[in-house]
């Protein structure tokens, strides 16, 4: 009796973990194709920030609008989940696979499997470092190096004509992820010419609010004069603001803050004067992605790099833009 019960519960566990594996995935996972409706398998990084949830929403809504059957899978921030999700899509025989890679490396094997199965792959928002670019059709997303550069350019302009030392601390994104690597590089390149600019501390906050706060607390304790904080996303910046306020300093005034993303919470802080400058990284690439998926499925040629449309915000611009922010 007990053995039977355990077996029953165990199969329950398996069912639960299978469900969690494609958390939020709607509908059954019967084999696709057959009809003329395009099936798109999409593997999302997770829901680590407001940006990401807006990205997910944009993809789900535009898929419904475009009449594309979306198989959505959430990797919960783990590469192994993403690889198994992609393998699942291959087994199900979807028409197009799109995914936002958790990290840049280690994708060759699974992408080769997709290629062997003749399923085109579209990378969204983050790139991979595979040497063989024929493994995927295109990469749609922001240019993270450019984002880092925009952040650096603003800082250079802000301190134009001043020669006193500027101590910068940096909150990096998830170690090894493309946005973290590229935003770091773009920023460093942009400020390289100014010898008075110095990045005194740089550590990962994993794109998370709580980590941003903890790391900033330690930065504040271990670095005498911080003039500028550069955070690779809004959420870490928001966490850092809490730490700066707790240390009795005024965010935006005592410490200038630059972040990337421009989600609603970040824009609110920008409009309140707690952040000084935000470089936008738009998550609303759903419509463009659906367009590409249709073209790829129809066998049309598409450019191998598609950029999303983006801008930057100062505190004044944030006040006008804020009412329109949906995410």
């Amino acid at each position: 009796m007990r053995r039977n019960l355990s077996a029953a519960v165990l199969s329950g566990v398996l069912a639960v973990s299978a469900l969690a594996g494609c958390g939020g995935g709607d509908g059954d996972s019967g084999t696709a194709s057959g009809d003329d409706k395009i099936t798109l398998g999409f593997s999302q990084v997770g829901a680590e920030s407001g940006w990401r949830t807006a990205n997910t929403k944009s993809i789900q809504e535009s898929a419904a609008a475009a009449g594309i059957d979306l198989k959505f899978s959430d990797a919960q921030g783990k590469q192994e989940n993403q690889i198994s999700a992609i393998r699942g899509f291959i087994t199900q025989g979807v028409d197009v696979i799109a995914f936002s890679p958790v990290v840049t490396s280690g994708w060759d094997a699974v992408l080769q499997e997709a290629k062997d199965a003749d399923i085109p792959v579209i990378l969204t928002d983050r790139a991979v470092d595979s040497q063989d670019t024929s493994l995927y059709k295109t990469f749609i997303g922001s240019d993270f190096v450019e984002e880092g550069k925009k952040a650096g350019d603003w800082l250079v302009k802000e301190y134009e004509g001043k020669s006193e030392p500027v101590n910068i601390v940096e909150l990096q994104g998830t170690t090894g992820s493309a946005p973290a690597n590229d935003r770091q590089k773009g920023f460093a390149d942009a400020i390289a010419a100014n010898t008075n600019f110095k990045i005194v501390k740089s550590q990962t906050g994993d794109f998370k609010r709580a980590d941003g706060k903890t790391v900033m607390e330690t930065f504040l304790q271990s670095t005498p004069d911080i003039d500028v904080l550069y955070a690779h996303n809004d959420d870490m910046g928001l966490g850092a603001i809490e730490a700066i306020e707790a240390a009795g300093k005024k965010p935006g005034t005592d410490i200038k803050i630059i972040t990337v993303d421009a989600v609603k919470d970040g824009m609110t802080a920008l409009a309140d004067g707690k952040i000084n400058y935000i470089v936008e990284c738009s998550p609303l690439l759903g419509p463009q992605l659906m367009d590409l998926a249709k073209k790829v499925d129809a066998g049309e040629e598409i450019p191998n790099r598609v950029l999303t449309e983006e801008t930057t915000f100062t505190q004044e611009q944030a006040k006008t833009e804020l009412p329109n922010r949906k995410y």
Partner: peptide, 26 residues
């Protein structure tokens, strides 16, 4: 049930419950 399995159920499902409560938002 073995403790490691019994609590694994809630470990996996619980995070889903939390996401349901917040509707995936912060």
């Amino acid at each position: 049930i073995q403790p490691i399995i019994a609590t694994l159920i809630l470990m996996v499902a619980g995070r889903g419950v939390a996401q349901l409560i917040t509707d995936g938002q912060i």
